[in-house]
Design a protein around this nucleic acid. Structure first.
Lengths: 118, 118
DNA sequence: TATATATACCTTGACAGGCGATGTATAATA
DNA sequence: TATTATACATCGCCTGTCAAGGTATATATA
């Protein structure tokens, strides 16, 4: 893990919802996929992950059920709801806005002067 | 203000440092500039702003002095240090990394399947 | 057989950053 | 005279993150 989590903070819910858009999944698997997707540059801490599941379920964005594996550790599967899909779309939109604003705001004033040709 | 502050969280320090790269400035002015730069879509809450100044000063990234205005309210000016400039460059780099990773992570798995042509 | 590792879940308590509320003071304007 | 703008500051709450600890099953290794 190489990235500061304060920069990802606020995106945890969006990331989880994204992983549930195609099919139901469970915590451990989602986290492994996050690690693979980012070449091990990022992972969710377990406490963060399971806290987020509770939060999302409380908000009605996901619901859960126990898997029926007859071998290995038990898994709790999560399914995204219609409200969850709606929230996901909204959160993605907000990310695009935030990205745009942050890009503006963290730009050095020196650079900006250069760009204005002054 | 239209943007969720959890999405900006972690960037407050970078934003402030960016505003000090060209010239010394003070809290009220920096915040006004942020509002102007973002067409009033974002502003730092005063408590957040002044907390950040304390934090940055404690870290040695900025130092402060009182202005010598002989009219109007007094101003505390902040100046970025060499360490502050170094930190600013680092934080910008981390933002580029975070931006890249978040874009990957919040992408819908449905979309990704489409992109893979499967 | 014992031990370590991988899979899989969960909770508690501390910490840090953001912020509403509140306060102070000066100057200009209505 | 009252309001608004400028300008700074702190306190205490809230929320999300996470280190640390715990439970349980299955497999690989020594």
């Amino acid at each position: 893990m190489s990235i500061a989590s304060d920069l990802i903070r606020g995106h945890t819910d969006t990331i989880i919802l994204a992983h549930l858009t195609r099919e139901d999944s469970y915590g451990y698997k989602i986290n492994k996929e996050i690690q693979m997707d980012t070449d091990n540059q990022y992972e969710l801490k377990e406490a963060t992950l399971y806290t987020a599941f509770r939060r999302l379920e409380g908000a009605g964005y996901i619901c859960s059920y126990w898997g029926d594996e007859n071998t290995g550790a038990r898994r709790r599967y999560y399914s995204i709801t219609a409200e969850g899909r709606q929230a996901y779309r909204q959160l993605k939109k907000e990310w695009e806005e935030a990205k745009y604003l942050i890009d503006i705001l963290i730009k050095s004033k020196e650079e900006r002067e250069d760009q204005n040709g002054r």
